[in-house]
Design a protein around this nucleic acid. Sequence first.
DNA 1: GTGCCTCGAGTTCC
DNA 2: CTCGAGGCAC
Length: 709
Amino acid sequence: MTEPRDVSELTKAEAAAELAALAEQLGRANQKYHTDDAPEISDAEYDALKARNAALEAAFPALKRPDSPSDQVGAPLAEGFGKIRHARRMMSLGNAFDEGDVVDFATGIRRFLGLQSDDGLAFTAEPKIDGLSLSLRYEDGSLVHAATRGDGETGENVTPNARLISGIPHKISGAPEILEVRGEVYMRHDDFAALNLAQASRGDKEFANPRNAAAGSLRQLDPSITATRPLHFFAYAWGEVSAPLGTTQFDALKLLKNLGFLTNDETRLCNGTAELLAVYRDIAARRAGLGYDIDGVVYKVNDLGYQDRLGARSTTPRWAIAHKFPAEIAITQLLDIEIQVGRTGALSPVARLQPVTVGGVVVSNATLHNEDYIQGRDSKGQAIRDGRDIRISDWVEVYRAGDVIPKIRDVDISRRAQDALPYRFPQTCPECGSDAIREAGDSVRRCSGGLICPAQAIEKLKHFVSRGAFDIEGLGARQIEMFFEDRDLPIREPADIFRLEDRDAANLTKLANRDGFGEKSVTKLFAAIEEKRRIPLARLLFALGIRHVGETSANMIAQHFGSWQAIVDAMQKATLGEGREWDDLLNVDGVGPALAQALISAFQQPETREAFERLAELLDIEDAKPLDHSNSPVAGKTVVFTGTLETVTRAEAKARAETLGAKVAGSVSAKTDIVIAGPGAGSKAKKAVELGVEILSEEEWLALIGSEG
DNA sequence: GTGCCTCGAGTTCC
DNA sequence: CTCGAGGCAC
């Protein structure tokens, strides 16, 4: 950033121009602040702009604008998009990339449901529109709000804009009291071309592709702009409903259509995978003529009862899948290979590419995974790309996996320069010079420098303040980088964050005097840090950045031990591979030897242990509360299924029991609370009798949990 | 021991 | 979003 010139040097015209620019910049920042997780500028920069604006106004009072940002202090900033929590999560879909994946999908479902054959297992197939998904909530027949998908839990409130889209009725009659309709907002090819022509003639920026145009149009803060954009909406799913929409997917779609929504009339009802694949080929052949972008075909189990039984994995339903079209590829030249160092020390090669357009987006970087991938081998040592390696200056085929992540698929050896040498993967860390070691059976090479390595230290800190961890407002990745380098108030380890205010008070060079840091932003930052001083145990555990400990396992571990002190005590007593603490740890759901070892080492190695101690001292750690399954009769019980289950399959019974807070084990032991024995139960039932464990028939079990729906 | 299933880690672009 | 690998069931 260039240093602003002294106010006294400016001419009147220059000052006026700068004030206008500042008004515009600050106005935009104000909006962004309320609508975006990642504001365009930091609080510090924001404060700097405001300060500059005030200085200019002081020097040139006559130039003060009617829309001066200084008059808007504290005024709640333009109505941006509020957040809306979806009543039912908006899930994403699993992907199938070839016919084999589709067959696997269908067999998996048959197995889960315990069906002998394809009989009665019908699917719907419909084009997968390449737009953005939207959830519309109707209460008593009126549209009350519309929300984007967001992260699936919470989306943005775009109601005023949604009201302007064709295919979205404001009122519907004959619908359930509560009805959330979900579908895709998209732009047709002809409309997209016309819009870009108009944009160009006005000198405005053209959109890269219809999806971006649709997204940009829907997320206009000014609905009058959205009104001029030709958006359409297809309904294909629903969220919360107060009454069922039917018994099948197909009927439900028909109902939505009757209610006044546009549904895609390419939707077909299919029996068995052969018919699904026929639809896929048919749609693929007619793809260009549909008039809008699609990126595949979606298959859904037709029977809603089956959909219910199948349920969902963590982010995707088991009853639907997206069969994707092959990705578009582009040819470009590999300019360089750079090595990034992650928080675990992993050295990741990234390809710097001659920029090239792939699927409507300009790509200039792509991941190269690891050293084996560059050399033409996969993790098992099998040749990929027929063993062709990738060299700097090579011509390569780039595609976007899942239409997002740029990857290099292949290399054109015939165009290879004579003097191109095989790439030599660094054996030392490019950031700190420590040895980079690859452990047996591991596909990544890691910097051995630990926290000595600045790259690892910074990445660990970024993780520490990230969303699922401490999530401190105003202290994101950029601020971490800045503070890490700071001469007077450096943040080198997590504990430094919680000492920042005290250190600032004791320091001569105050944060507030620093370039870009205003009094206000400093107060805000300290408040945000203070707010996170009290932290749930699971979040803290996740934030520490111990290898293999993600959000899920952190939750499980916190749940198991209950308190920070319990974890510290157990980990210090533990020995690797044996003993009571080790066994206890392995008993935690989701914890195996690799995680256990990483956890114990982290709590025993002096550097990390001491850093944890320094941190814990400054925090108020909330004990983990036992899961609240107060309405569940089997919460916290360990159950074992044995014998043949008649109405449900094993997998289904297990999934069901787990959602009710029960732990499902494979064998009967003293810890088992209930054994559900079907016909053919053998040794396990016998053991249950010996141990005096409660034994239920399948019927009794269902009666027990039945009330939970 | 083998084969799913999920989670964790790393990455890109807007 | 994907890959690899850890964890777990069979």
